[in-house]
Design a protein around this nucleic acid. Structure first.
Length: 259
DNA sequence: CCGGATGTTCACCT
DNA sequence: GAGGTGAACATCCG
């Protein structure tokens, strides 16, 4: 999915519906609505006005003037479509087209327009009043102290820790590889083994990389991305990239400069 | 035809 | 308890 940069792009586009009043809610796929029935979700949102479009990690939250808010998760293939326009065109594993059968959830607004989630693989989902307290600090703005706390005392691979949304919210597989490559840190390093200056460096690279990927418009816009394939070489020093599963995800890194 | 792919969750191991 | 693995979700692409 969309990792943090994509969801931030979705959030930006979703700002267009702030101030609009929900006329009706369509949830053709009940399975996609988590923790509440489609009827309950519809009742909670109908007639309410969207007051903010926020992002926490990979979670997009629409606040309302009522007692409820809406959380949207996009899985790997979810695309946000506002007023018929996809929020991001180049979603790599997203829908190749906007098949109406892939609309899993939709808000229709009173005066005009609509906000829909298209998700072919149904890996995402929407929820009423999502519990944001289970998410760690947002990767775009995490402090050195919070990042240090997320890594401290763990024998788990550094990358696995970065991907743990409860400890740090927003980093996905591509962003993790890009950040570790830029920071010169091996993904398999025990998370708790980083020295204070390494944590400071990682934090600086993380925040800068996330901001840059947001500007470039996607987590696939990193400098490492095009090289993470068989035969790929490190764009910094030409070393053949290593590939392994770390934290349950395919991981590419430079065995020469990432230590 | 087969294997993987920007994610999350859960059951089941070690 | 902490981590790891594999499955599941459903589709596309090489």
């Amino acid at each position: 999915m969309p990792e943090l940069p994509e969801v931030e792009a979705y959030r930006s586009v979703a700002e267009a519906v702030v101030g609009r009043r929900v006329r009706s809610v369509s949830a053709p796929d009940p399975w996609y609505v988590k923790g509440a029935s489609p009827a309950d979700a519809a009742a909670a949102l109908a007639g309410r006005t969207v007051t903010a479009a926020r992002r926490h990690g990979k979670l997009l939250v629409l606040d309302t003037d009522g007692p409820h808010r809406l959380g949207l998760r996009f899985g790997m293939t979810g695309t946000l479509v506002v007023d018929g326009e996809p929020a991001l065109e180049r979603l790599r594993y997203g829908p190749a087209r906007l098949d109406p059968g892939w609309v899993r959830f939709e808000l229709d607004f009173a005066r005009r327009g609509r906000l829909a989630v298209h998700d072919p693989r149904r890996l995402g989902g929407v929820s009423l009043d999502p519990d944001e307290s289970v998410l760690g600090p947002d990767a775009a703005t995490v402090s050195v102290a919070d990042l240090g706390a997320a890594l401290a005392g763990s024998a788990a691979p550094l990358k696995a820790r970065l991907l743990d949304q409860a400890r740090l919210a927003g980093v996905g597989n591509l962003v993790a590889d890009e950040v570790l490559w830029r920071a010169g840190l091996a993904p398999g390093r025990p998370a708790g083994s980083l020295a204070p200056d390494e944590i400071r460096g990682l934090r600086r690279v993380l925040v800068a990389t996330v901001a840059e990927l947001c500007r470039r418009g996607g987590s696939d816009a990193g400098d490492l991305f095009v090289h993470r394939r068989p035969g790929g070489r490190c764009p910094r020093d030409g070393t053949g990239l290593a590939r392994a599963t770390v934290g349950g995800r395919t991981t590419w890194w430079c065995p020469s400069h990432q230590r």
